[in-house]
Nucleic acid binder design. Structure first.
Lengths: 119, 119
DNA sequence: TCTATGGTTAACCTCAAGGTTAAGTATGAT
DNA sequence: ATCATACTTAACCTTGAGGTTAACCATAGA
């Protein structure tokens, strides 16, 4: 159910942990864009966008193709899929009707290996 | 299809952009744990784990209840759900059979508002 | 060949992440 | 009252994120 394999998703989550980059992702989902376009879209300097694009590339979320002097960026689906799969491992857990803290007193009584000295 | 509302997901993605914290999340999905338990589980110092827990709390991904001197942590489902919803906005995009770069030449020919000087 | 456009790189700044050790607080046990 | 446990906080360190400006390469067009 919940694997212990190192998932290597840190770069992806990290790439998405930024408003600018999430907006870039969404812009690219609608249509490939050049770096300059993204810069003007977000009202940022070219070097700033360039760094964000690098972060996205390091997470393999984006691919580029150069046409003339223009770099067109397009979204990759694989990382978002992996992210989806990661979240899905919790769906069985969502299945149990635990309202988090509401039922965790029940957990405590049911799980004696929890270091809870009897008061 | 793709909303422009500020989603406020940065703290969640940021919280997940760390191997330790993702492991903590998974451990908590199995069963609530105390801070000391998490520390020994991950082989980290107590202050280090404490900081990670704070990050998770700031993202509202975790709730705590103090019993005696022990702090039990339990997972919150809401942030993971919001994250799921965010990723789901791309599902229609996955529907179109765009192999990312493979079809983006087609995009170029179909989208004249793209700043592409005719070569 | 010159010039404008698109992007990259370098140098710098500020701030925060993530770890440490050491000291402080809260509560349970003796 | 004292001692151990379970944190918490403070002080510190190193590294990297995210922005800037300025200078540099690459290519298209006149």
């Amino acid at each position: 159910m919940i694997s212990r394999v190192p998932d290597d998703l840190s770069p992806v989550f990290d790439a998405l942990a930024n408003d600018h980059r999430r907006e870039i992702i969404r812009a690219l989902a609608l249509q490939p864009q050049s770096i300059s376009q993204l810069a003007s879209l977000r009202g940022m300097s070219l070097p700033a966008i360039h760094k964000h694009v690098r972060v996205l590339e390091n997470a393999a979320m984006v691919r580029r193709r150069k046409i003339g002097r223009t770099n067109f960026l397009a979204l990759e689906r694989a990382p978002l899929r992996r992210l989806t799969r990661w979240v899905e491992q919790f769906h069985p857990w969502w299945g149990i009707e635990a309202e988090s803290l509401e039922t965790y007193a029940a957990y405590l009584s049911k799980e004696p290996e929890m270091t809870q000295e009897s008061s």
